[in-house]
């Protein structure tokens, strides 16, 4: 590791000024960055610790009922947050799957997003809740849907002078539930072979009026299963419907063969996890067995 300059800005403008130089990297939890530096997979001239910036380490309720989570908030803080557990339980569940407890105590939500791993556990839940990524840079602020950030494995739309400051979870309509499930050979310390987050919103007649399904580890980036979503809109939940959505989600996926699983196996996992997450989300909204 070459020598770098270590900075601890106290505000986002100070952070942006520090970030706007070659080989400047943000350090929040360091659980990905530090191994990359040690193995010389990443060169750094400046390392910027963002954990002294209050706006990046707070969870705050928005006036419209949504929630703003600073990019440097840790997985453990999110998993233990009463408001996250009550309003966005699929997110609380997914961050508690990342690595080990030691890793969760350090790893940040913003890091999970900005590392842009297709397998990032927190990301599918964010996408199915319709979360926004709030980016700040020398030219001002912009907000994108979380899924619009990714351009490839490990790559994002962030410019050199830009930082992810926070994530906004929108207020959810009544009768909304989301569930994330992943498949891993080992429950902890493992990377999803495939993961699916399904969110549905029902109307007064128990028809599905909104569906957002997000897939992990089955493409170059986390991705939305839009064909699967289309099969659901306007329909009443049933096992047969969810089978069809699962099949559509498998075709939305574009997995590769690697050591963790073959492409065919991953497609199969997507169909099963999609069906299960939809059934599980429905159970939170409707009493009794599915038709």
């Amino acid at each position: 590791m070459d020598l770098f300059n270590f900075q601890t800005p106290r505000s986002i403008p100070e952070l942006i000024a520090a970030k706007n130089s070659a080989n400047a990297w943000l350090l929040a939890g360091g659980t990905d960055l530090i191994p990359q530096l040690k193995e010389d997979r990443r060169k750094a001239e400046t390392i910027i610790d963002v954990k002294k910036i209050a706006a990046m380490t707070n969870i705050s309720a928005e006036q419209d009922g949504g929630l703003n989570i600073g990019a440097a908030v840790t997985a453990t803080t999110i998993a233990q947050s009463e408001i996250v557990c009550a309003s966005y339980p699929a997110l609380a569940y997914s961050v508690a799957l990342i690595g080990s407890r030691q890793v969760q105590n350090r790893a940040s939500l913003g890091g999970n997003v900005c590392n842009a791993a297709p397998s990032a556990d927190a990301v599918p839940a964010l996408m199915s809740y319709g979360a926004l990524a709030n980016i700040e840079g020398t030219k001002g602020k912009r907000s994108l849907m979380v899924e619009e950030i990714f351009t490839g494995p490990g790559r994002t739309v962030l410019e050199q002078d830009e930082v992810l400051a926070s994530i906004t979870l929108p207020a959810l309509p009544e009768n909304t539930a989301a569930v994330y499930q992943r498949f891993t050979p080992r429950r902890e310390m493992d990377i999803a072979v495939a993961g699916v987050s399904s969110r549905i919103t029902l109307d007064a007649n128990s028809k599905i009026v909104d569906a957002k399904i997000a897939l992990a580890s089955v493409g170059p980036t986390p991705l939305r299963a839009k064909a699967a979503e289309m099969t659901l809109i306007g329909e009443v939940p049933s096992l047969k419907l969810f089978e069809a959505a699962g099949a559509a989600a498998a075709s939305d996926a574009s997995p590769i063969d690697d050591t963790r699983g073959s492409a065919d196996y991953r497609r199969h996992l997507v169909s099963v996890l999609c069906r299960r997450t939809l059934a599980s989300a429905t159970k939170e909204l409707i009493q009794g067995d599915l038709p």
């Binding site: 270590f6 360091g30 659980t31 530090i34 191994p35 040690k38 610790d49 030691q102």
Partner: peptide, 29 residues
């Protein structure tokens, strides 16, 4: 392992367990 997989270097910092191989000393100010 030196990369956060094995937990041999676990310590408690401000009440939180973490892998001390995955934290710069400069962060412990």
């Amino acid at each position: 392992c030196s990369n956060g997989n094995c937990g041999s270097c676990t310590v408690i910092v401000d009440g939180q367990t973490l892998c001390s191989c995955l934290m710069f000393a400069a962060e412990a100010q």
